[in-house]
């Protein structure tokens, strides 16, 4: 899974998605910003992807999308919208993938984030080390010899 870090100072969830969508459209990951935002919001309407501790994992599910991408969006704006636990969202982990294909790295990342310590550490991570920290979480189980 390819990891990108896209820091932003944009305020609000929708404006942030628009900005990321525009960038992903340029990267040919999404056809355009509007389609990207609608897809992500449709999933959010079914149930929030806020996982607490200032983290949110929005999904951009697009059949046929390959390779899968993970866009880490540290929110550096002074204000941010609250997550389900009331804490302001500080890091978006936008996963772009084909829902019909297994995504073991993504699954491993989510299992790793079930640990509040790991999640808190990730949110505090400086932008420069974020990609490596995410890669470490995705391969942590392999390195521990577990599935």
């Amino acid at each position: 899974m390819k990891i990108d870090v896209y820091p932003t100072t944009t305020i609000g969830f929708r404006p942030t998605l628009t900005a990321v969508g525009t960038w992903l459209a340029k990267q040919k990951v999404a056809p355009n910003s509007q389609q990207f935002m609608e897809t992500v919001l449709t999933r959010e309407q079914a149930g929030s992807t806020s996982i607490g501790g200032g983290l949110m994992v929005p999904h951009y599910m697009q059949p046929g999308l390959s390779p899968a991408r993970l866009v880490a969006v540290p929110i550096h704006a002074a204000e941010s919208w609250p997550g389900l636990d009331g804490q302001p969202i500080r890091l978006l982990l936008i996963t772009c993938f084909d829902p019909d294909q297994p995504q073991p790295a993504f699954q491993a990342l989510l299992r790793g984030l079930a640990s509040p310590t790991a999640a808190a550490k990730l949110v505090r991570q400086p932008d420069a080390g974020l990609a490596q920290a995410l890669a470490n979480l995705m391969t942590m189980e392999e390195n521990n010899g577990t599935n």
């Binding site: 992807t49 994992v57 599910m61 297994p102 993504f106």
Partner: peptide, 11 residues
């Protein structure tokens, strides 16, 4: 369950 079976459901 979640929409993809691979995201929040794993967590």
């Amino acid at each position: 369950m979640c929409t993809s079976g691979q995201g929040t459901s794993e967590l």
